Simulated assay, not measured.
Amino acid sequence: MKKVSYDLTNVRAMSDNDSDFVNLMVHTFIKDIPRDLERLAVAVGDLDRDKVHRYAHRIKPTLELFGIESFKHAAALELWGKSDV
């Protein structure tokens, strides 16, 4: 499995360095992102553009907030999901 780097700088800045908020954001990320990635993968496999758009749109800002470069892939999937080509 590929190791993914993350960066909490944006989360800390957003929370004015509130450790409780940072912990809540990390906990929410750990809980929600795997489920949304699974749903996104299924939607891609099914070529369900509406769901691809919805899940990519949902995870993209979170990935970007955590400094995870694959937010760019989510952005590309989001655009694909919106297109009809």
Rank of each mutant, 00 (worst) to 15 (best):
M1F: 09
M1H: 09
M1Y: 06
M1A: 11
K2M: 07
K2A: 04
K2T: 07
K3L: 14
K3S: 10
V4W: 09
V4L: 12
S5V: 07
S5D: 11
S5R: 13
S5N: 11
S5W: 09
Y6S: 04
Y6H: 04
Y6Q: 02
Y6M: 09
D7R: 01
L8D: 04
L8Q: 02
V11W: 04
R12Y: 05
R12I: 01
R12H: 06
A13Y: 06
M14G: 00
M14D: 03
M14I: 02
D16L: 03
D16P: 00
N17H: 02
D18M: 00
D18N: 06
D18T: 00
S19M: 03
D20T: 05
D20W: 03
D20F: 03
F21A: 05
V22Y: 00
N23Q: 12
L24A: 11
H27T: 13
H27W: 07
H27A: 14
T28F: 08
T28Y: 07
F29W: 03
F29V: 01
I30R: 11
I30D: 12
I30N: 14
K31I: 06
P34Q: 08
P34I: 11
P34A: 08
P34E: 10
D36Q: 07
D36H: 05
L37A: 07
L37V: 06
L37P: 08
L37F: 11
E38M: 14
E38H: 14
R39V: 09
R39E: 13
R39I: 13
L40S: 10
L40M: 11
A41N: 14
V42K: 15
V44S: 08
D46R: 13
D46T: 10
D46Q: 14
L47R: 14
L47P: 02
L47I: 10
L47H: 14
L47C: 14
D48Y: 08
R49S: 10
R49N: 10
R49Q: 13
R49Y: 09
R49P: 05
D50M: 07
K51L: 14
K51A: 13
K51M: 12
K51D: 09
V52L: 11
V52G: 09
V52A: 08
V52D: 06
H53V: 05
H53R: 15
R54A: 11
Y55V: 02
Y55I: 01
Y55E: 09
A56F: 04
A56N: 05
H57N: 06
R58Q: 06
R58W: 02
I59T: 00
I59G: 00
I59Q: 00
K60S: 00
K60P: 01
K60N: 02
P61G: 06
T62M: 05
T62A: 07
L63W: 04
E64I: 00
E64M: 01
L65R: 00
L65W: 01
L65E: 01
L65T: 03
F66P: 00
G67H: 03
G67Y: 01
I68G: 04
E69W: 01
F71W: 11
F71C: 05
F71H: 04
K72W: 07
H73N: 08
A74S: 05
A74Q: 06
A74L: 09
A75F: 09
A75Q: 11
L77A: 04
E78Q: 13
L79Q: 15
L79F: 15
L79P: 09
L79W: 14
L79T: 15
W80Q: 15
W80H: 12
G81K: 12
K82I: 11
S83Y: 11
S83R: 13
V85N: 15
